[in-house]
């Protein structure tokens, strides 16, 4: 974080996948927190464009500001400088059209699975609401657990409840902050496959934070590699492998190793 001059900060906005209309853009976003009477710069010069329906992974070392950036995009935090625009409008607060998925911690422990998934559907008539809830319970494979409380579920099941709760309100954008970080490796693989299946069916715009390189390369259309604090965009890698991805193909390994060396470089800075 000392010799930031040598970081290859990208200042021009990175364009999304060719052919996609722009859903979200950040313009010179900077973020600083006040700590012990000192300002701690966390994000600097974040310029990014995300296409409609695109799957973008934010990847970077711990503490580089990934969660902060995602919270700002979701409207929970105001950037200290610059602007975040969704559909051309500046983001001024949280909005049900853009749902943030916290690890499984965001599931409300006082509601059943049904209650959680239907939480964002308060305004629908009961019948329609029940149909929607049923549909998403089925989509995430939680049939039979409708009346269960979160403490009766495993970590992976709670995570699925949260994803279903987000999907149920039919948002255009989903922000996922290390959603599978707390899961065991097998459940994590299953969840990735399910997320891809849902994404391909519903074509949401997804911003997905991870510090797992494999996860990023398996999921994303583009991987945004960030440098250590203050976080900047160090490189954006397009993953040009069609789904389902063969994770032992030479191209996959090449892309993964490329990012790996970028991260290694980031650590040496």
């Amino acid at each position: 974080m000392s010799s930031s001059a040598s970081a290859r900060a990208v200042t021009a906005a990175e364009p999304p996948m060719p052919g996609l209309p722009i859903k979200l853009r950040t313009e010179n976003v900077g973020m600083a927190f006040l700590r012990d009477d000192k300002t701690l710069p966390v994000l600097e010069n974040i310029n990014l464009e995300v296409g409609n329906g695109e799957f973008v992974c934010l990847l970077g070392p711990s503490g580089c500001g990934k969660s902060t950036l995602l919270s700002a995009m979701a409207g929970f935090l105001r950037p200290t400088s610059g602007a975040i625009l969704i559909d051309g409008e500046i983001v001024r607060g949280a909005d049900p059209r853009r749902i943030f998925v916290f690890q499984e911690r965001g599931v409300f422990p006082w509601l059943t699975v049904e209650g959680n998934i239907g939480f964002g559907l308060r305004k629908l008539p009961a019948k329609e609401r029940a149909e929607r809830v049923g549909h998403y319970i089925q989509m995430v494979g939680l049939e039979g657990f409708e009346k269960s409380y979160p403490h009766e579920l495993s970590g992976g099941m709670k995570q699925r409840v949260e994803v279903a709760r987000a999907l149920a309100v039919n948002p255009d954008v989903m922000f996922l902050d290390e959603p599978f970080g707390a899961l065991d490796s097998i459940t994590r693989m299953v969840m990735r496959i399910e997320l891809l299946r849902i994404w391909q069916a519903e074509r949401k715009t997804i911003l997905f934070v991870t510090h797992d390189i494999d996860e990023a390369v398996q999921l994303a259309d583009r991987v945004v590699v960030m440098s250590a604090r203050p976080g900047r965009i160090q490189q954006i890698v397009s993953i040009d492998i069609p789904h389902p991805r063969d994770i032992s193909s030479p191209r996959y390994l090449e892309l993964r190793d490329g990012i790996l060396s970028q991260i290694g470089l980031a650590h040496r800075l």
């Binding site: 979701a74 929970f76 607060g93 949280a94 909005d95 049900p96 853009r98 749902i99 943030f100 916290f102 911690r105 965001g106 409300f108 939480f119 964002g120 309100v169």
Partner: peptide, 13 residues
């Protein structure tokens, strides 16, 4: 009350 619950509530409008 954990901030996640409040943020989640706000997020759903």
């Amino acid at each position: 009350v954990p901030a996640v619950y409040i943020n989640a509530g706000r997020n759903f409008g």
